[in-house]
Design a protein around this nucleic acid. Sequence first.
DNA 1: GCAATAGTGTCTCTTAGACACTATCTT
DNA 2: AAGATAGTGTCTAAGAGACACTATTGC
Lengths: 260, 260
Amino acid sequence: MTEPNFDAETAANYSPRNYRTPDGAPADIVIFTITSTERNTSKKSLPSRRLEVLLIQRKSWPFAGQWALPGGFSKETETLLASAKRELQEETGVENVHIEYFNAYSEPGRDPRGWMISHAFCALVHEDTLASRRAADDAADVRLFPVQEALEMELAFDHRQILHDALKHIRHSMLTTTIARAFLPEEFTIGELYQVIETVVPEFVERNFIRKITSTRSRKGIIEEVRDSRGELKMSSRYSQRAAQLYRFTGFSPQLSIYS
Amino acid sequence: MTEPNFDAETAANYSPRNYRTPDGAPADIVIFTITSTERNTSKKSLPSRRLEVLLIQRKSWPFAGQWALPGGFSKETETLLASAKRELQEETGVENVHIEYFNAYSEPGRDPRGWMISHAFCALVHEDTLASRRAADDAADVRLFPVQEALEMELAFDHRQILHDALKHIRHSMLTTTIARAFLPEEFTIGELYQVIETVVPEFVERNFIRKITSTRSRKGIIEEVRDSRGELKMSSRYSQRAAQLYRFTGFSPQLSIYS
DNA sequence: GCAATAGTGTCTCTTAGACACTATCTT
DNA sequence: AAGATAGTGTCTAAGAGACACTATTGC
């Protein structure tokens, strides 16, 4: 070990405060959601979807008045993940959502309050679970912004960088894992799944999507057809005249490799 | 924000020390290397390779005498990555190697010295670059251990968990990125590349490896043939009677997706 | 000539990628 | 009938996966 000299044999001789220590352990959370708005068509149609991020407007120094990622200070008695979950609960009222740690930010001077290494989390929240909260503090100091818009704003701290990295992270995860499920109901149609992927990764194009996801050997098992109690295939006609098969994720996710 | 109340409008009113702050910001580094030992064969042959991890034996409280991951405390004036690189340099004398952040460890009580959130890095080091150091402090308090062996040791702190996670991390990266290059010389044969992958991911089997890596469309461009100054294909007969084509990584790495 | 690695031939089955086509049902 | 989504047919070229086979060369 380097900086502090732990020459002592016991804790008694240990003096932690003869060197500089951090001034806090903040956790920031990039809360993504996909909003859907009905399109104005004459027939049933898929909604148009948009990736949005939740930001809060700061009330106090530093960066008072500026928009920032929600976050808070971790406590000694909890893990960072627990802090992030607590913060998410306080901010949006939701629990049991997909949340994952993705990076730490430690650039000296990134926080005017002192030496703060920020721990950044991504949370993916289904819009329905956010709906109640949105009604409550609409037009308040907590808002959803389209991601593209948020990326062009002057956010507090290095939050623009964090948001940028988070976006890159979920774009990658969207294609390599089954996190799409975080944005979807338990049972969904292929069309919805495709839309979610497309919303997060605009360049995603896959014309034979349904065939690939349902019937190629290496991918079979990612999703499965839903059946009702009588064993009949369960369909949905929420977004289309012709009923569509409902699917659910199974938990299986194929191993990817550039070599095979 | 939660814990501290930043009601003030300016830094003047800001009092950072009325709540608990961390007692340090440690960075721990899991330094992996692949050692090769010649097999005792009558003909030229590929060496047998093993994945090893560098551990140090602690001199002082806490966990005095136990083996631990190298690490140190980050300073206020440097980023975590810089701390990790500095520590790596001090411990092994190597610079410019593959190093990446992969997780934070924040379980309360994980460090008897106080509240310490540890930042864990993976470094992949080619054995040649470690060779000089090894000669210097062999039989000392710094040693390479086979990974399987290290995983069964009682390591200091939660370092066993960290090592376990790091291994999982590099196994995944080995198949999905081109980190294999960190363990290989600039120019290498297909046989060597295959061995490196196999060493990190024992279950990797790919009978038609050479064909896949060199001539399938989606993978073409990951590696390229090396030619000498006269434009002739450059071969190596270091490990085989029949000379083998030398390749190098190009920097290209294909995009992976479970959906296409 | 044999050990050890390097690399090719060849066969079958599956998948990729493109595009045209049919199906269903409500307004 | 039109509009909107759901889904199939079909063709070609490419790739996966298996296994036998040839190539090279120092000992």
